[in-house]
Design a protein around this nucleic acid. Structure first.
Lengths: 144, 144
DNA sequence: CTTAATTCAGATAAATTTGTCTGAATTAAA
DNA sequence: TTTAATTCAGACAAATTTATCTGAATTAAG
């Protein structure tokens, strides 16, 4: 479903959100370790998201990434769309470009329902929710 | 969601089913044209599915592919799993390997529901349904 | 001011997926 | 029996995705 890049991105954003509670920065090394991703790769991904305004970054010693209250308004769906595009939420279930109510594929209407449900799931999970988690509520994100 | 290979496979199988009504064979050239795929590529894919018993093939002049009544019991879900594996129907929504009821990811239970719904959609679309379609009911499968 | 730790930028490399080429084997029709 | 049309098999190639390398720029601490 999600590309690997996108899975890393979503997990990283959740992790950063969880660790952005009191102005502290999280560095790439820690993020990579905690979400189980290649360090340089998730670095690239977050740098891209940072340039596009999904999170803050600061360079130099003791630098890292941070998700402020405004960034935290984003949902996981926003991140997914930013990284993978909206094909997952809008595309056809058998890969037709033109598929629509008028020219439906064989599973169009049911598939559309499922797709929308999926969208709502990612959409209703906002970074704010993770930012406010405490201690034992924190979510594990290591891949294996 | 589905890989391109899998999208081709599903559309091709639907097309062959639709055209397997009276023992006629459908050749790769025609299939490729009708589903909008590279000819040699869908050829490879169908050869693989044929070896694994998802459809019949016959070589030589006037040869081609055919879906018999037994093959037609397969659902689109069977094809998807044969080609892409079951990650789409079983995998975690944020890419965790261990994600489960016991160690759930942040969207585990809702995601699982959506995943299951998706599975049911592909599962309840069987090739039989396409094999029995007539004339104007036939489904368009060209990509663009 | 120097040093160490970090992000950043651009190039490169490896792995995977998608697509093509070539020729052999098979088959039906003429 | 020859020919033409097809699937089949295995190698190859191109494109995309995933991952790494290198060095520059930045920043805080000592």
């Amino acid at each position: 479903m999600l590309s690997k890049t996108c899975e890393y991105a979503v997990r990283a954003m959740i992790y950063v959100a969880q660790n952005s509670q009191n102005g502290q920065m999280v560095n790439i090394k820690k993020i990579a370790e905690k979400i189980g991703s290649p360090e340089l790769f998730i670095g690239k991904i977050l740098q891209g998201l940072s340039k596009r305004g999904f999170l803050q970054s600061s360079k130099g010693r003791y630098g890292g990434f941070y998700i402020n209250d405004n960034d935290a308004k984003h949902s996981l769906a926003d991140i997914v769309i930013a990284v993978d595009g909206d094909k997952i939420f809008k595309g056809c279930g058998v890969g037709l470009d033109y598929c629509s109510e008028k020219k439906p594929c064989p599973i169009h209407s049911e598939y559309k329902t499922a797709r929308n449900q999926l969208f709502n799931i990612y959409k209703s999970a906002t970074l704010e929710q993770f930012k406010s988690l405490k201690g034992s509520e924190l979510v594990m994100l290591k891949r294996k």
